[in-house]
Every structure is written in C-alpha cells, then in structure tokens.
Amino acid sequence: MDVFMKGLSKAKEGVVAAAEKTKQGVAEAAGKTKEGVLYVGSKTKEGVVHGVATVAEKTKEQVTNVGGAVVTGVTAVAQKTVEGAGSIAAATGFVKKDQLGKNEEGAPQEGILEDMPVDPDNEAYEMPSEEGYQDYEPEA
C-alpha cells in the first residue's frame, strides 16, 4: 500500500510541476504579447503594419512553449490582441483601416495563427491545408 501511495504522490508532483510550467509559459506569452502591443503603439504610420505582424510573430513563438489545451486559448487571445492593436492603430490615425491585415508588401496577414497546427491532446499534428499553395516548377 505504501508503494501505491508513494507512486500516487510522485504522479501528483509531476502534474503540479507540469501545471506550473504551463502557467509560466502562458505568463511569458502574455508578456511578449504586451511587449508587441507597446511596440505597435510606438510606431509611426509606416511601421504600424509591420508592428502588428511582430506582435503576432512574438506571440506565436511563445505559444510553442505552452502545451496542451492552453495553446488553443493563448492563440485565440493573441489573435484578438493583434486585431485590437490594429483597431487602436486605425482609431489613433497611425494607419488607414484599409491597410490593416496586410503586410508591407500588401499581402493579407489573416491566418497567421489560424494555420498553425495545434492539437490540445498532444496526440497528432496535421499540416495546414494546401489550398493556398501553388506547385513550383523550376525553369529549365
């Protein structure tokens, strides 16, 4: 019985440690998101679009440190934060509304985080759909 109880105690310690790591990862992701939003706020009209992409990228980098179902929630929060940063930029006159959601080359930025393969159960990952990809044929 002692062996059984000791095993359960060790398992509990492992769960607590994993929860603490997840909590730490979420806190880091939130900190990076805040950094990115402050970065966007300090940019001029020309830099705002690039700044919004930076927020998304920093958040995406930190999301990889967070495991399990938390990833889905962090990704949703990050996307809403990026959308909010863009709205703030438009409201303050840093950028025109028609410039939001495009990178410096004018290509749409939507789907940055949505296409990231995420499995809350950590069982399997699927690649994003290939609808947006084109076949590449090298020139002879």
Rank of each mutant, 00 (worst) to 15 (best):
M1I: 00
D2C: 03
D2Y: 10
V3Q: 02
M5D: 00
M5N: 02
L8I: 02
S9R: 08
A11S: 03
A11V: 15
A11E: 00
A11I: 15
K12G: 02
K12T: 14
K12P: 00
G14H: 08
V16H: 06
V16L: 12
A17M: 12
E20P: 00
E20Q: 05
K21E: 00
T22A: 04
T22R: 01
T22H: 01
K23A: 10
K23W: 15
Q24D: 04
Q24R: 14
G25L: 12
G25N: 05
G25E: 06
G25Y: 13
V26S: 00
V26C: 08
A27P: 00
E28K: 09
A29I: 13
A30Y: 13
A30Q: 01
K32S: 02
T33V: 14
T33L: 07
K34Y: 10
E35L: 09
E35T: 09
G36S: 12
V37E: 00
V37T: 01
V37N: 00
L38Q: 06
L38W: 09
L38F: 13
Y39E: 01
Y39P: 00
V40L: 09
K43S: 03
K45Q: 02
K45W: 15
E46P: 02
E46Q: 03
V48W: 15
V49F: 06
V49H: 10
G51E: 01
V52M: 05
A53E: 03
A53V: 15
A53G: 03
V55N: 01
V55L: 15
V55S: 01
A56C: 15
A56N: 02
E57Q: 10
K58N: 03
T59V: 10
K60N: 02
T64A: 14
T64M: 10
N65W: 10
N65Q: 12
G67D: 01
V71K: 06
V71E: 02
V71F: 11
T72A: 15
G73Q: 11
G73L: 12
V74P: 01
T75A: 15
V77D: 02
Q79K: 13
K80S: 03
V82D: 02
G84Q: 15
A85D: 02
G86R: 05
I88H: 02
I88K: 03
A90P: 02
A91K: 07
A91S: 05
T92D: 02
T92Q: 02
T92W: 12
F94D: 02
V95Q: 02
V95H: 14
V95T: 12
V95P: 14
K96P: 02
D98F: 03
L100T: 08
G101T: 15
K102A: 14
E104W: 08
E104G: 09
E105L: 10
E105P: 04
G106D: 05
A107T: 14
A107P: 08
P108T: 11
P108H: 14
Q109M: 02
E110Y: 07
I112N: 05
E114V: 09
E114F: 10
D115A: 13
D115P: 06
M116G: 05
V118R: 06
D119Q: 15
D119F: 06
P120I: 09
P120F: 09
D121L: 11
N122T: 10
N122L: 05
N122P: 06
E123D: 13
E123V: 07
A124W: 13
Y125I: 11
E126R: 07
E126Y: 07
E126Q: 04
P128D: 12
S129D: 09
S129R: 04
E130M: 09
G132H: 06
Q134G: 10
Y136M: 14
Y136R: 09
Y136I: 07
P138S: 05
P138V: 08
P138M: 07
E139M: 08
